[in-house]
Write a protein that binds this DNA or RNA. Structure first.
Lengths: 207, 207
DNA sequence: GTCTATACTAGGATAGAC
DNA sequence: GTCTATCCTAGTATAGAC
C-alpha cells in the first residue's frame, strides 16, 4: 500500500520541458503547444498545472536562480582567502551553466525581457523576487571582490563595476557554449578553470 | 532649385524608431503599431518602406554592426602595440555602446534570437550576413590578442577563449548601462577607460 | 507617400468530455 | 488529470482612399 509513485513531480517535468523550449525559441517564440509537444502531451496538462505561459516562464527562472544561489552562496560566505573563494565561485558557476544550459539560458532571457507591462499584480511580485535574487547573486561576487581589495589581495578596482564585468563574462557563456558529444565532466572542469582564470586575471595578471 | 530636402532619410528615421521600440519591448514584444507610435505616424508609412517586421529588425542590426566594425577595424589593423590597440578598441567599443544604446541592445537581442525557422530565403541571407559580421568583429579582437600573446606582451591565454570572455563583458554593458541625466561625454570616457582596464587586466594585472 | 479601413492567422486561454 | 474542441484577442499584413 501507499505505492503512489513518489509524486512524479509533474510540475518539475513540465518546467524542464519549458526550459528546453524557451531556450531554443525564446519566450515569445515558444507557444504552449510547443512546450506540450516537447513533453509529448497536449496543453490541457500544462494549463491544469500553470495559470499561463508567463507563470511557466517565471518558474523556470526561479528554479535556475535557486540552483545558482545554492551553489555560490556557501562558497562566498565560507572559508578561504577572497581570491580562493572568488576563483571557486566563478569556476563552479561556470560549470553549472554548462551542465544546466536550458535553465541558465532562460534565466538570461528573463533579464532582458520586458514583461513589466503585461504582468498581473501577482506576477509582478514574482518578477520583483527574481530581480532581487539576481541582485543578491551579483552581490555575493561583489562582496568577495570588496574583501579582496580591502585586504590588498586584489588591486584597487571598483567592486561594483568589476562585478558587472565579471557577470558579463559569466552570463555570455550561455550564448556561446555548445555541449559537444565528446564533452566529459573532466573537460568541462578544465574549461571552467581556464575561464575563471581569464575572468579574474585578464591578460596581464597571474593565475 | 533642387531644394528637395536632403533626402530626409525616411528609412533611417524609421530604423531609429524601431531600435528604440525593440530596445524597450524586445522583438516579439514590439508591434509595428508601437514603432509607428514611437514615430508619430501609422503603420502605412512603415509598410511602404519595409516588407515587414523582420526586415526592419534586421536593418537595425545591420546598422549597429556597421557602426561597430567601422569603429574597431581601423584600430585593430592600425599602428601600435597589441596592448595599446586592444585597450583602444575595447574602450572605444564600450563608449559606442553607451552612446548608441538602442542599436547596440537590439544587436544583442539578435544574437539570441532564433528567427531561423521563420525566415524567407532572402531574409536568411541577411541573417547569414549578420552572423558573419558578428564573427568578423570578434575576430578583430581575437587577432590582436593572438599578436600580443605571440609577442609576449600578454601571458599565454587561448585567444579564442579569451575573446569570448572579453566579448561577454562588453556585450553585457548593453544590459546594465543606464544613461543618466548628468551623463557627460567626459564621464562616459572615464567609465569606458575603467571598464577596458578591468576587462583586459582583471583583478591582479596592471593597467 | 501616408492614412484608414479590413482580412487573416497564430496562439493564449477556457469549457467540458473522458 | 489529461484531452479535444472552441473562443477570442492581438498583431501582421494588405487594399484602396487621399
Amino acid at each position: 500500500m501507499a505505492e503512489r509513485p513518489p509524486a512524479p513531480d509533474n510540475r518539475a517535468e513540465i518546467i524542464e520541458a519549458a526550459a528546453r523550449a524557451f531556450m531554443v525559441n525564446g519566450y515569445a517564440g515558444s507557444s504552449i503547444d510547443m512546450v506540450a509537444e516537447e513533453l509529448g502531451c497536449t496543453k490541457g496538462r500544462i494549463y491544469y498545472q500553470f495559470k499561463g505561459k508567463a507563470d511557466l516562464f517565471f518558474d523556470v527562472q526561479k528554479e535556475a536562480m535557486r540552483m545558482n544561489i545554492a551553489l555560490v552562496e556557501p562558497i562566498a560566505t565560507g572559508k578561504g582567502s577572497p581570491r580562493k573563494r572568488l576563483q571557486e565561485m566563478t569556476e563552479r558557476q561556470v560549470q553549472l551553466i554548462m551542465e544546466q544550459l536550458p535553465f541558465q539560458r532562460v534565466l538570461v532571457q528573463g533579464v532582458e525581457m520586458h514583461l513589466e507591462g503585461s504582468t498581473t499584480p501577482s506576477q509582478r511580485k514574482v518578477l520583483d523576487f527574481l530581480i532581487a535574487q539576481r541582485d543578491r547573486l551579483e552581490q555575493l561576487f561583489v562582496q568577495v571582490v570588496k574583501e579582496g581589495v580591502r585586504d590588498g589581495e586584489f588591486r584597487k578596482v571598483d567592486p561594483r563595476i568589476f562585478g558587472k564585468v565579471l557577470m558579463g563574462s559569466i552570463v555570455w557563456l550561455t550564448m556561446w557554449y555548445k555541449p559537444r558529444p565528446d564533452d566529459t565532466p573532466a573537460k568541462r572542469r578544465k574549461l571552467a578553470r581556464e575561464l575563471a582564470d581569464y575572468m579574474l586575471n585578464g591578460l596581464t595578471g597571474k593565475a
